[in-house]
Design a binder for these strands. Sequence first.
DNA 1: TATGAATGAGGGTTCATTCAT
DNA 2: TATGAATGAACCCTCATTCAT
Lengths: 196, 196, 196, 196
Amino acid sequence: MKKNKPKYMQIIEAAVEVIAENGYHASQVSKIAKKAGVADGTIYLYFKNKEDILVSVFNEKMGQFIDQIVYSTSDRQDANEKLLTLITMHFRQLASDHHLAVVTQLELRQSNKQLRMKINEVLKPYLVVIDNIIREGIKEGIFRDDLNIPLVRQMIFGTLDETVTNWVMKDQKYDLVGQSPDVHALITNGLSVKKR
Amino acid sequence: MKKNKPKYMQIIEAAVEVIAENGYHASQVSKIAKKAGVADGTIYLYFKNKEDILVSVFNEKMGQFIDQIVYSTSDRQDANEKLLTLITMHFRQLASDHHLAVVTQLELRQSNKQLRMKINEVLKPYLVVIDNIIREGIKEGIFRDDLNIPLVRQMIFGTLDETVTNWVMKDQKYDLVGQSPDVHALITNGLSVKKR
Amino acid sequence: MKKNKPKYMQIIEAAVEVIAENGYHASQVSKIAKKAGVADGTIYLYFKNKEDILVSVFNEKMGQFIDQIVYSTSDRQDANEKLLTLITMHFRQLASDHHLAVVTQLELRQSNKQLRMKINEVLKPYLVVIDNIIREGIKEGIFRDDLNIPLVRQMIFGTLDETVTNWVMKDQKYDLVGQSPDVHALITNGLSVKKR
Amino acid sequence: MKKNKPKYMQIIEAAVEVIAENGYHASQVSKIAKKAGVADGTIYLYFKNKEDILVSVFNEKMGQFIDQIVYSTSDRQDANEKLLTLITMHFRQLASDHHLAVVTQLELRQSNKQLRMKINEVLKPYLVVIDNIIREGIKEGIFRDDLNIPLVRQMIFGTLDETVTNWVMKDQKYDLVGQSPDVHALITNGLSVKKR
DNA sequence: TATGAATGAGGGTTCATTCAT
DNA sequence: TATGAATGAACCCTCATTCAT
């Protein structure tokens, strides 16, 4: 397994840094090789081509990201708590790694459709986690039972994603994690004044 | 005003088609010229450079898009109705122009940071419309008065954007406009069971 | 004859200015047309192509230049006086028209071999004037009778040309005409200490 | 040092040939690469850009040219002998390399002002050699002591340059080196009949 | 495994010239 | 004569990928 060789992760880490610093389009393979401390040709012993590096970056980094969220939400008691944890973890992980935030929110989106399809594959387990929380909430009688689950999932993911992207575009100048409760409240309660 | 010359819009329309068909990065100026039925050099009588074509595509197309929404929401009675109209119009307009949907949701996002900043400028009036609806709703006593408006705007825009993107990525196979009421309900009521 | 029409000289003058200000390679036909106050297409009613403009610039301007020298040297008494006059006139005319100096010494030399052949044709009458002065000097017993006339002509023209070019390259900061006597002395007496 | 790599000189030599054969403006990088037997991209491993190729051509070729002259004039006894040697070497070197003669006398002059400034830098050591010979001649009592040295240098260089250019323009049909003594005599004695 | 020199395809842009009015 | 919008050929340079060592 190539992933166990030290140079594999070395190149992945270099790629994240290079992309974060230079932007997607100015991230030449030779720059990544230099930052990783290997020869250009060595890259191709570990990755099929440039796109493969980028997909792998997303695989590795989002894999950890999702694992963290899955782990953190597994022992919470109800769906509401789990949802808040998911939001908080989503924000916290990206807030704690600025390079990764820039790369996932801005740079990797500049890839072509084909690459984004592969990236979406990586995201699927995350979306499943969201779906499960919704289902649990319905079962627990906390969430309405007429929810269109894919739609809810899109709302949740879209909201989180847009919030992080705005924060990155504003140069990460404010506290992202601090917004978790508000975002959670919005998602669970909506805009409307509560009916008594 | 160049915009009144027929070739200007001819090139814009050709650009939308070429980008939708070939993807952002495979959209050579020469392809756009050919599709528009003009010589390569003619492009540069109407646009400063390639980026200018792309920004102009967005300007023109999103300009109309936003104008439609502003117009449609201007005579509604309350914020709730306006919000539903906004959602419906957002979906309807993109659903009725598949090329435009592909270009705005997938292709133009592949541009670099600088170009995306310009694109965001164009979007600002739309975000203002959303903000105003929220404020009206609060004033009317329909929406909660403790709402963090930028956050709410991000939720609304993020939800709509993610929903459209998913629909485009799924090859636009289902009815997008039909989801408007559900999306509206989600945004106004949230996930939770109503307290009595 | 096109040369008698006012626009012909208008374009020539515009060309000199544009070339002097922008340099040979940045002198587009459209710039010359604009400066001359005519449409691009009008240029082609008076000149066959761009090269024809440039050759004509040289024709007209050097024609006057040479006429002046021919006229000024025609009534001098001996070859020595004529040579001094030629040198002085050569320097004076270029010193009094900075645009022309830049154009003849720097910019027009950037043209290709073919154009430079045509330019050399224009220069021929000037070289004949030099030859004649040398022959007169020999006949008058002022100049040595073993002179290789083409070589002497090259020395004279080369010296004048190099002197003017240096002056132009040094941004015309010193007095060129004041060097005439020294240059004349050098050409007639050479470097050596006079034998008694 | 790139200059030690064989491809560097290979490309320089190819550039001289291509420029001599096609002229400055028709010398595409791809033509030079083809003649040098390398890929287009390889050029850019050794040169920053096209202009850098041209400056380097001049550097290398004129560098050798000047070195030869410096070396040959270093062991002569008096300034007169040195001057004759300089003239002879100047002519001999260009006469023995027709391509180089065309490139230096005709083609490289078609470059823009900026490039010509760089070329002039390369020539400076040659002009210093001329200056030194003049000064020596004055010190030795062979040359007049009232000489304006920059002017003399311009005369000498202008004469040699014009002579070579004429020879190149006449398709190098006559013996250039054979003219050295005559040119030397002209420069040292001038046109005038010697006063006894 | 590792290297890094070499490859060569690909595209945005300029500008001299034309021609319908 | 005069216009100026339209044309389209031409070229430098980058960079992902290969392969001899």
